[in-house]
């Protein structure tokens, strides 16, 4: 596949934060190789401080790499022109607090040179999509709750109908319904053929919507990009789920399994397998005490 065809392509991308004197302080991202296809929902997974936000900032040109290269939609990261086709939801909604919901969207719209008429149509539409009601739109952003700020942040990311959307921890601050809506929105974006790069430390987010994921830990790639389905593939483990078994019945089933020649049957309460995977890779990569 041609490099140009990737939505995002990085090679050996590295970021070292320096202190005032130019000495190395934190190696926030080390040697990241990443290729995201167009039309894909890609998850960047990792615990806090693993370099997810750093990756996104590098892709947007907010900070500059210490090594390696990054291309976004076929252009070097940080190119102003390519921003026409990018939407970005930062970790927290950093917006002008003295404007109201509508004003801020109009402001961002003007940065895309969207004509006034078009904005008159698109702004209310977007506010509907992200679920901000009429009262909320007229209120100053400084009066917004965290969830509302998140929603308006999402709306500004979508104002230009972008091809590539970068979402940094999209569900933080949202209530369960909001989280659900966010996931639905991501799925609908995918259906519209858009590429989504989302990063999260919440496994449930990723599991439900992502096509492929990568796992970062302390800046290192601990799980190379792979389809979620592959990672969660059940090998020779069978899991039977049911409800309302009493201990006696469980003992009976165990006995029956022994009878069938299965001696190491392990009965637990189910967890998401991604969480298993996550905890395992993190444990494996942690320095041994």
């Amino acid at each position: 596949m041609n490099v140009q065809d990737y939505a995002v392509h990085t090679q050996g991308l590295t970021k070292v934060y320096k202190d005032f004197w130019g000495r190395d302080k934190v190696r926030a991202l080390d040697n990241l190789d990443l290729s995201i296809n167009r039309g894909e929902v890609f998850g960047l997974l990792g615990p806090n401080g693993s370099g997810k936000s750093t990756t996104i900032k590098l892709l947007l040109g907010l900070i500059f790499p210490s090594g390696g290269s990054a291309e976004v939609l076929g252009q070097a990261a940080g190119s102003t022109v390519i921003n026409e086709r990018i939407g970005f939801l930062p970790e927290e909604s950093y917006l002008y607090k003295f404007l109201n919901g509508e004003e801020i969207l109009r402001f961002y719209g003007r940065l895309f040179r969207i004509p006034r008429k078009e904005l008159n149509r698109r702004v209310p539409e977007l506010l509907d999509i992200v679920g901000l009601d009429d009262k909320a739109r007229k209120r100053k952003l400084r009066e917004y709750s965290k969830g509302m700020a998140r929603r308006i942040g999402l709306a500004q990311a979508l104002i230009n109908n972008p091809d590539l959307i970068l979402l940094d921890e999209p569900t933080t601050g949202l209530d369960p319904i909001g989280t659900r809506e966010m996931k639905d929105l991501i799925i609908s974006l995918k259906q519209q053929g858009k590429t989504v790069l989302l990063c999260s430390h919440l496994l449930a987010d990723v599991q439900d919507v992502c096509d492929r994921i990568i796992i970062l830990f302390r800046g290192q790639t601990v799980q190379k990009p792979a389809p979620v389905s592959d990672l969660l593939q059940v090998r020779d483990i069978a899991q039977i789920q049911t409800r309302g078994l009493n201990p006696q019945q469980i003992e009976d089933i165990k006995a029956h399994l022994v009878h069938m020649g299965v001696n190491d049957a392990n009965v637990t309460h189910p967890t998401t397998t991604l969480e298993d995977l996550f905890l395992r890779v993190v444990r494996e990569n942690s320095p041994k005490q």
């Binding site: 947007l60 040109g61 907010l62 390519i82 921003n83 990018i86 970005f88 950093y94 500004q156 230009n160």
Partner: peptide, 14 residues
Amino acid sequence: ENRVIYTIVTKPIS
């Protein structure tokens, strides 16, 4: 400092 700049420089404004 308050990161408002994030959402501005990531728009097609030089």
